[in-house]
Amino acid sequence: MMEVLLPILIFAALGVLFGIVLAIASRIFAVKTDERIPQVQELLPGANCGGCGFTGCAALAEAIVRGEATPNACNSCSAENMKAIGAIMGIEVADKVPMQAQVRCSGKCGVAKLQYHYEGARSCIAADRMGGGDKLCAWGCIGLGTCVEVCKFDALHIVDGVAVVDHTKCSGCGACVNICPKNLIELLPVESEYYVACRSKEKGALTRKQCDAGCIGCGICAKLCPEGAITVTDFVAYIDQSKCKKCGICAEKCPRKIIRHENEVYDDLINAQKKA
């Protein structure tokens, strides 16, 4: 009888002992954490995308409570959640325009000319160090998908050698903007529709040699835009989204067809995915 009872008793006693010790220890070693940190973290998206520059949502929540980051530091956060974080912190939060990413390049395979054949590490950052990548154009998308890797929302895909944003999934966190070695990705307001899909600052003649879809800085769009929203500096057009009324004249008249509508880009992406 004792042979069975003794082990049971000893182990029960051990269990109770450890339980009591841990219970006491948790009281003694209790750390006072700011109760606002979990509250703020609850309001953040929880994707841990790192677009804010901190390691994750928990780290950002801590930084916000400590006052090291502003309540609107997260680009993916909805406006009402931002307000709620501001309320917890007792700070008035200015309205933030929701943003989405766009890749400013249309140099697909065959369209952009190559300077050499690249077979190195499959990373845009590595390829960029090899004479700025395999495309002749020093500004264009390398297309090895380093931005695709960092995107936590499955919003970026490589289509025909160029990164394409799926604007229905993009949360505007900015992680891709930070990683792109070519600085090609730009955050635009969600309501914007047209954008210039080229960033080449080379003179028109040179751009023409390097790529069949590069902005040559002809200025037709700037002349035709009824709102005066388009400016051409350094041989590349740029649309001021705050003035754009989305009439679409620029996209229609662009001789290089590089002023694009976000839906057109999206259709390209869907078609490519269907083919695959």
Binding site: F11, F18, L22, A25, S26, F29, V31
Partner: peptide, 23 residues
């Protein structure tokens, strides 16, 4: 019964160490 005893001891120990370090 050493396997059972060690699991119990290690689990409790790790928890204890975690609390101690945190403080």
């Amino acid at each position: 019964l050493k396997t059972v005893a060690f699991i119990l001891v290690i689990a409790a120990l790790v928890q204890f160490i975690e609390m101690f370090l945190r403080r």
